[in-house]
């Protein structure tokens, strides 16, 4: 279970939070002018990144505040926590070596160092 550093409350168990998915998807300001495809892009299409992903979390059983989290989805490491409206930070992350592969360490999916 993750340990999340709520920017308002401090470190709390993941059970207190809910994840709102990919961050920095802004609701379009001009919906009537968008095509069905463009609307679908906003509504449904997601990057679903393996590696460093920016996402929204809500301290739903706490202060109920939304904030952004930079998390490596290949290892579940949380690299940064920042406020809504802030730009995503530039971060070094322990990304997978090949696109569908695993990072050097941390995914837990390969337990041995090969020769």
């Amino acid at each position: 279970m993750l340990l999340i550093n709520c920017p308002y409350c401090g470190e709390r168990e993941q059970e207190e939070f809910s994840c709102g998915g990919e961050a920095h998807i802004e609701r379009p300001k001009n919906p009537p002018e968008l095509s069905d495809d463009q609307w679908a892009d906003y509504l449904f299409l997601r990057q679903n990144i393996k590696g460093l992903q920016f996402e929204r979390w809500n301290h739903s059983f706490g202060c109920r505040q939304w904030f952004n989290v930079a998390r490596n989805t290949a290892t579940d490491e949380i690299l940064a926590v920042y406020h809504m409206g802030e730009k995503p930070p530039k971060l070094e992350s322990n990304d997978p070596i090949t696109p569908c592969g695993e990072p050097k360490i941390g995914s837990g999916n390969f337990s041995t160092s090969k020769k």
């Binding site: 290892t75 360490i105 160092s113």
Partner: peptide
């Protein structure tokens, strides 16, 4: 140790 996602060597 491996559950903690550490790596083993032989």
């Amino acid at each position: 140790f491996t559950q903690s996602r550490g790596k083993l060597k032989y």
